[in-house]
């Protein structure tokens, strides 16, 4: 039986324009949106798989030592002799020990700021309810968030793994309660520092490759020079305050130990901890000042 439709079964509608009458945020929401956008970009989210490979590979690389450590501990858990001989990775050593975080910053920081200037997206961004300060806060916060996550998550693996391997999980937690605040504080100190230095250096150029090389050069070359000078002068030197890469590790030592670790190039220097901390603050201030200067005004 044939059904005859008396009304049209399909129609084309011109939906026209619908005004927006919902909630509308201000600077805070715009800054948050820029932070979210930058985090997504740095992690390769909503981008091709090629952009995802690098950041997630680095997360795996930074976590490998923790997994290996826990794995070995699990394997020898029934052998008290081996267990006593095995040198577990300490939480202090694990903060900032991996250069993969620095490599991540060298690639991610230019990626979140250089295209904005190179492709002239900045005028469009600054035509929104955003100021230069908001832009700097959002970009630095985005890199800080990811570096913190990459520095902190392996510690979670290490902590949980060692807790499960230990004879008494509860005893392990109570014995290491201080780790629960020392690790996040140290990771935050490291993340903020790397983010400010990385984004500040990247902001000086439109080209990502130049930004990345500058970050690696400014952080790694002083480390090499200081190492040579320190070796020539018995292992430590006041010039270690110029070791930009290692300055956050001074603060890490102060958080974990209350003094500089013996493995620091500043360990034999009088008031080395204070010098290191002051240098850390000075680098941060220079970085922030550079960023605020670079984004104080935008041309259309």
């Amino acid at each position: 039986m044939t059904v005859i439709h008396t009304t049209p079964r399909a129609a084309v509608y011109d939906r026209g324009y619908r005004p927006y009458q919902g909630p509308r945020g201000g600077r805070r929401e715009a800054t948050l949106a820029l932070w979210r956008l930058s985090v997504r970009r740095a992690l390769g989210l909503r981008r091709s798989w090629r952009q995802k490979v690098f950041p997630w590979s680095l997360l795996v690389i930074t976590t490998v030592p923790a997994i290996v450590d826990v794995g070995i501990a699990y394997a020898i858990r029934d052998d008290p002799f081996e267990l006593a001989r095995f040198e577990f990775l300490t939480y202090r050593e694990y903060v900032g020990v991996s250069t993969s975080l620095l490599v991540f910053v060298a690639l991610a920081a230019p990626d979140v700021v250089c295209p904005d200037r190179a492709r002239r997206v900045l005028p469009l961004l600054f035509s929104r309810p955003l100021t230069g300060v908001d832009y700097v806060v959002a970009k630095v916060a985005a890199i800080t968030t990811i570096v913190f996550g990459f520095a902190f998550l392996p510690h979670v693996v290490l902590f949980v793994g060692q807790m499960l391997v230990a004879d008494g999980a509860l005893d392990y937690v109570t014995d290491n309660l201080d780790v629960l605040w020392k690790v996040p504080v140290s990771a935050a100190v490291l993340a903020v520092y790397y983010a400010v230095v990385g984004v500040a250096l990247a902001s000086l150029t439109d080209r990502r490759i130049v930004g990345g090389v500058a970050i690696l050069g400014v952080t790694l070359i002083p480390t090499a020079v200081v190492a040579i000078v320190a070796e020539a002068s018995g292992g430590s030197t006041p010039l270690a305050v110029l070791d930009i890469r290692a300055l956050p590790l001074v603060l890490r030592d102060l958080v974990f130990l209350g003094h500089i670790g013996t493995d620091s190039r500043l360990s034999g220097v009088e008031a080395g901890g204070v010098l290191g901390a002051l240098s850390y603050v000075a680098v941060l201030l220079v970085g922030v000042a550079t960023l605020l200067h670079r984004y104080r005004e935008v041309d259309l």
Binding site: Y20, G22, P23, R24, G25, G26, E29, A30, A33, L34, R36, L37, L124, L125, R128, P129, L130
Partner: peptide, 13 residues
């Protein structure tokens, strides 16, 4: 959508 969010609109909107 990004520039909508930057103008203060909630992400879904």
């Amino acid at each position: 959508a990004t520039f909508g969010e930057l103008a203060g609109l909630p992400p879904r909107a």
